[in-house]
Lab assay of single mutants.
Amino acid sequence: MSIQHFRVALIPFFAAFCLPVFAHPETLVKVKDAEDQLGARVGYIELDLNSGKILESFRPEERFPMMSTFKVLLCGAVLSRVDAGQEQLGRRIHYSQNDLVEYSPVTEKHLTDGMTVRELCSAAITMSDNTAANLLLTTIGGPKELTAFLHNMGDHVTRLDRWEPELNEAIPNDERDTTMPAAMATTLRKLLTGELLTLASRQQLIDWMEADKVAGPLLRSALPAGWFIADKSGASERGSRGIIAALGPDGKPSRIVVIYTTGSQATMDERNRQIAEIGASLIKHW
């Protein structure tokens, strides 16, 4: 067993022997300050990975656009099909120029040879490739089937209704393509630590998230040396920005953090900075 597999395998073990964890309200002060700075709603939740206990939250049951954070859930659904023998990570999918949508930095380079399901999930999570996400959605039956998968997991909140890039419209009070911080955190925890996926698939999912290449300005920018993070960011219209992450010190994840914001007129750089500052406060008061 590799060191990485050993780390994931021990998560349920540590759950039975973990020391108590305590929240620090200073982080919530920073979350509220971020709302003021951005002139927008901010949703935040911090969940103990082992016990599932909510350590701190702000607007945990308000809806926010999922943006590209849905791609982790999508690849979780794909992996569940792999575990059930209904899909193969090595299966090659061919597509055409007509399938390409905006922001497809990986898939646009493989029009001649296609990409495997594994490569598409990697592109969707690590590079947030939109065409990769659409091709993967097709393999499971579309957005409604992803919503059904989540319902079967016990998540009756999170929903995907449209494809890339339309799902990023982020219209106020529109429940399409939205989640709540509490629902997303719970669902992510189930995918990473529960029995829904095999150990190999849980490890694959967290490996893809750990290799995320487009979330550098967010929580990763505040991460001390030696800390672990596996994450997925998202951005969409109407000043929306978000990130879902499993992180912790000593090279292993111990908490789930979900941050969403929407309705801001601030620049992308400012939205990134506010999320990074929330992360810095979280780490300082860990």
Rank of each mutant, 00 (worst) to 15 (best):
S254E: 14
A266N: 05
I45F: 13
S201I: 09
E210A: 13
A222Q: 15
H156E: 14
I244S: 12
S254Y: 07
F17W: 09
P12G: 14
T186H: 15
G85Q: 13
S57K: 10
E145R: 12
T178H: 00
I206N: 04
A170G: 15
T198G: 11
Q88D: 12
N50K: 15
E87S: 02
S264R: 05
P217I: 03
L219G: 01
T116I: 03
H24F: 03
N173L: 12
E175W: 08
I11C: 09
D250N: 13
E195K: 12
R220Q: 01
R59Q: 02
L199R: 15
H110D: 08
A246P: 00
V8G: 11
V157E: 08
E175P: 14
S221C: 09
I11H: 06
D177A: 01
V258G: 01
T138D: 14
G52V: 03
E277K: 07
D83G: 02
V257I: 12
A84T: 15
P60E: 15
V101I: 10
H5Q: 09
K144G: 14
H24W: 03
F17M: 10
A222C: 08
H151V: 14
S254P: 02
H94I: 15
T267R: 09
Y95S: 07
Q274H: 15
G242S: 05
K213D: 04
L167V: 11
D231A: 04
T27L: 03
N272L: 01
R189A: 10
D161R: 01
A84D: 14
N152R: 11
M66W: 00
T179I: 00
F228K: 02
P172K: 07
T178D: 01
A230G: 07
I243L: 08
Q88V: 12
W163E: 06
L219K: 01
D269I: 09
Y95H: 02
K53E: 13
L136A: 03
T107A: 11
M127G: 03
T198K: 12
E237A: 15
D161A: 03
Q88N: 14
S128G: 02
I275T: 00
D207G: 14
Q265T: 15
S236E: 02
A170T: 11
Q97R: 13
C75V: 12
T126N: 03
Q265A: 14
F13W: 12
E87Y: 03
Q203L: 09
E175V: 13
G226L: 01
K144T: 14
S240F: 04
K190R: 11
R220C: 12
A222Y: 06
N173Y: 13
G251N: 13
